[in-house]
Design a protein around this nucleic acid. Structure first.
Lengths: 212, 212
DNA sequence: TCCGTTACTGACTCTCGAGTCAGTAACGCT
DNA sequence: AGCGTTACTGACTCGAGAGTCAGTAACGGA
């Protein structure tokens, strides 16, 4: 009675495991085909299960896509927070955020976000989720700046405004790199981000590490 | 013989006029429904013509959407160039670009662009067009910076890099305002853009006009 | 050992939308 | 006036995809 679901979990999937597995697969499919281009069938095929199973766990395709976005968002934020929590001093912590947030070689989640922005124009669920992630990200950036100021590593008059500017710059840069790779390299992108950051935090440009 | 098409144009549409009219209507529809959500039928209804007429002028829906994007892009660039050509001195010219590029109250074309970015992830035609617009816009910004430096109004070491940073920041800001209006007002957005611009161009922040 | 429940199947329905096509009417040209 | 051309119509086809549902097999509990 204490754990009715758990007792079945030994050799079978629980509902929660299955849902997570489906969300995971959906993310992969959406990365290939986009929100608009993803069919329920594609997700089923990805897992080698039946079409009907997806509808068994998710009431509609819309719900599936919205939950997939939230799932991916939580992942991204968790990854960033982890990067922040483990690094010091302040400058390394900050730079690690930049490197983690900006799109990297194997990075795919940017594609998801760019796609989600477009979809969010017409879908309230997605709009809400993308806004949540955005605010969480700016808040994290602001926190790292404030901590740095506290430690005496940075000088910054208005951490909130600086965080917004840096976040906006990085969104714009990431967009360029992911969408039109030819126009800008990751190196240049990092260079731009660090240049603005140095200005905003009252540092010398060369204070930043050369790491990519 | 000199003008076979023109002779019919007196009381009838030429093919070119019709195409332009359809592209115009398509843009309006796409703004409401997005690239993914626009049906050929919606465009026909917008003009009060038949479904078949759209296919008479455009081979496929894909072609229609791609040409619509190009049509809108040309419009946007022309508007920016006009703003630049007529304004002086350099600072007013630059500020006018900012005000014109950033999303305004009645501005809708941003919605089109955000949507196009997402679509471009999977559509080579749209990707190419959005890249063209982007490069034209950065080139224009760079030109205005160089001219300002020439006139002695600005100080800027690397106009190309500064143009990229300002452009990226503005893309990021515009995205915020259009997508999550609550998180940032146009006033704040302009404030952020001018703050970065002042830094990049070696100016005092208060050198900029207060115009919105 | 039987039985109710639950996770799952896959064929089906039903809607929707892109593209087609036979037909039409107005035009300009001869 | 007669004729070929052209812009346009709207009913149709055809494929595709979301969601349904009757059926099934494995489970745990009584």
């Amino acid at each position: 009675m204490a754990d009715t679901a758990g007792s079945r979990a030994r050799n079978r999937y629980t509902v929660e495991q299955r849902r997570a597995e489906i969300l995971n697969a959906t993310r992969d499919v959406v990365l290939r085909l986009g929100f608009g281009g993803t069919r329920v069938r594609d997700v089923a095929d990805e897992l080698g299960v039946s079409n009907g199973l997806i509808h068994y766990h998710f009431a509609s395709k819309d719900e599936l896509l919205a939950e997939t976005l939230r799932f991916a968002a939580n992942d991204d934020i968790a990854r960033l927070e982890e990067a922040v929590d483990t690094a010091r001093p302040a400058l390394e912590r900050f730079d690690r955020m930049l490197r983690n947030y900006l799109p990297g070689p194997g990075d795919v989640s940017w594609r998801l976000w760019i796609d989600a922005w477009g979809e969010a124009l017409r879908n309230e669920n997605l709009k809400e989720i993308s806004q949540e992630l955005d605010e969480a990200w700016v808040a994290l950036l602001e926190r790292v700046i404030r901590d740095g100021v506290h430690e005496g590593a940075f000088t910054c008059e208005n951490p909130r405004a600086s965080a917004w500017r840096i976040a906006a710059l990085m969104d714009g840069l990431g967009l360029q790199v992911v969408l039109h790779r030819s126009t800008m390299s990751r190196t240049q992108m990092l260079e731009h981000a660090r240049t603005l950051a140095a200005i905003e935090l009252g540092l010398e440009r060369k204070a930043f590490p050369a790491r990519r």
